[in-house]
Nucleic acid binder design. Structure first.
Lengths: 348, 348
DNA sequence: TGTTAGCACTCTCCTATATTGAGTGCTAAC
DNA sequence: GTTAGCACTCAATATAGGAGAGTGCTAACA
């Protein structure tokens, strides 16, 4: 399973050349362009070996070689040189979106767009819920007989709202009471804290007001369950069509059928590695068969040190991994930073 | 400019056949399929006339004829038979979305999807702002030094929020006072009413509380200006790729570049006819050159008799106008109905 | 034993060249 | 005014012949 130095060089040359040109690469090209100090015939022998080992494959007998998923994997794990990505422009854009609207959702949406523009792949930004956010305000608004709207604001500036059913006996004034009790008790608490410890406390407080009791519990739980919802911001799909592999409409259809379904997309993003740092999934490594010609480069962004979302770049398996790595890393760092800044403005 | 009966029949046959088959239609096909009682030679003569008049054109000398934009226009205005569209299923789906989330935005988003699914064109749903909505609740939430979030709920269940700057001197308690004054004064008023008459009244009320005065005006105006924002819900883009004209990637790119830009899309939808009923814009009738191969069938939906948004179907100029008309009409009616129902639940 | 030059072979891609067939326009007859 | 007939046009399809890129294998070489 381990490759000698020359095989590594040959594999690296093949991957890099294919990434750059999208054309199957032959032994002569390598001998000419990548000075390995050996003739094309030798490289041919090495290539035969690499093919047998499964790192590269041939579209047809008289064509050059193309990396297999396994080949890309080896390249990513062992051969790829880490790049630095740095774009003052991107940083400015991101901060610009922030200062304009001062809202996390807005920043994330535009981060997705930015990813697409920078790379010509498809950027995906996902929030896994704001587990680390702090409660800021809750308001129950009476919406007519038997209905109330719960509006909840977190200190990240995220607003959730949902309509819930209420018993007919509850009046607008009761909702006001509940709202103020909740606001008083929950001020500045993190979502986890609320969930774990405070519900009981509020239960006692509101128990004094008898008939609103049961409701209160429901409202909190319903309200908090909003938080678990994942949200996905998709970058531009247009850009990825610039990749040469998309001359085939069927591929576009497959991609769209997938991207248009937020739910499926969220599943895929969640399936892919749960850890820290930048992760890559290549082609058939992903469960969804429709993605067999795609790769996904993913990273995690943070708020107060805790992961609160992911960003991903979806491109052809032939994508520029080194650059994608760098871009994803750069963007996660900057999104984290921007969110952090947003929080600092707001104080504790 | 007026066509005799036979020319009309020939034109109608050409348009209908081309809509059905996407193939240029020749004189023989018409003679065979559409019993007009004359030979193909005669039809050839009529076609030569129609071409000279600009209603049809020839892709190349030895091909059949294809309707021109002008031809489609004549068909839509004078020849097309009105269809009825009725789908209990669609009605159920729409109401289903309503009862589940009880929120207009949710219904509209899914109406867009539904349009795409039913027709295999691209559905677009746009709210032109809720000019007719009634104020339900406003809340100013203190978000840290110098910042406040305005959250406004309308009785249609739409929630707007925006962060605004506030003077450092304003405390959380002041915001609470402002909120309650505003809520008391504005309860159940329409947005227009608020804008036109009430600002002054509130000005007097809050004048008693000296230092909050200037702010209050700002907040209301900033808050109300939110209302003008148009919002667009796009149906599935995937479906339109099933149309045979999309074997060409370039066309897909053009379409995507347009659809991905909410702002441009809103402009186009607004350019297109402002009146009542279902409207059609065909190909080059639209200003944006990128849409020269597309048509847009649009309608308006209402709340309490007033137009509050538009829905549109974007398809190739070859689209099935009769059916699209029917579907758009059906959907506007049902969206209006569903919104109406939503409002009734909430009482006045 | 590893490396290399050389060569036959394979297979795609491109180009040039028929061939086909749908459809037209025109003419002459009805 | 209508129609049958026919020559003509032109895209689409098929066919054949290179050209070129690349391989695998063999035999010679260091």
């Amino acid at each position: 399973m381990t490759l000698d130095a020359r095989k590594k060089n040959v594999l690296m040359a093949i991957v890099q050349d294919y990434i750059a040109t999208a054309e199957p690469v032959g032994s002569r090209t390598i001998a000419r362009k990548y000075k390995l100090g050996v003739s094309s015939a030798t490289i041919r022998n090495e290539m035969a070996d690499l093919e047998e080992m499964g790192y590269i494959e041939q579209p047809h007998t008289s064509a050059g070689r193309v990396p297999s998923d396994q080949g890309y994997r080896y390249y990513v794990d062992h051969l790829m040189k880490r790049e630095e990505f740095n774009s003052e422009e991107a940083k400015l854009v991101l901060n610009g979106y922030l200062t304009k609207k001062r809202e996390v959702g807005h920043v994330l949406r535009n981060a997705g767009q930015l990813l697409s523009q920078i790379t010509n792949y498809t950027g995906v930004v996902m929030t896994t819920g704001l587990g680390g956010g702090r409660f800021k305000h809750i308001q129950l608004v009476h919406m007519g007989r038997r209905q109330s709207m719960v509006v909840m604001v977190t200190d990240a500036g995220v607003v959730h709202h949902q309509i819930i059913d209420i018993p007919e006996s509850i009046q607008a004034a009761d909702l006001e009471t509940i709202s103020s009790v909740l606001n008083h008790k929950l001020q500045g608490k993190t979502i986890e804290n609320i969930r774990l410890t405070l519900i009981k406390e509020i239960y006692f407080e509101l128990a004094k007001q008898k008939n609103i009791l049961d409701m209160a519990i429901d409202i909190i739980q319903e309200g908090l369950s909003l938080e678990t919802g994942e949200k996905i911001y998709l970058g531009s799909i247009f850009n990825i069509l610039n990749q040469p592999e998309f001359h085939n409409i069927e591929k576009v259809k497959v991609l769209l059928s997938l991207l248009e379904n937020e739910h499926e997309l969220a599943n895929i993003m969640t399936d892919v590695f749960q850890g820290e740092g930048v992760t890559v999934r290549i082609g058939e490594e992903m469960e969804d068969g429709r993605l067999k010609d795609y790769s996904l480069v993913m990273g995690t962004y943070h708020m107060e040190g805790k992961p609160v979302g992911r960003i991903g770049l979806l491109g052809p398996t032939r994508m520029d991994y080194a650059r994608s790595f760098a871009v994803v890393e750069y963007m996660t760092d900057n999104i984290s930073l921007v969110i952090e800044r947003l929080m600092r403005w707001r104080g504790k």
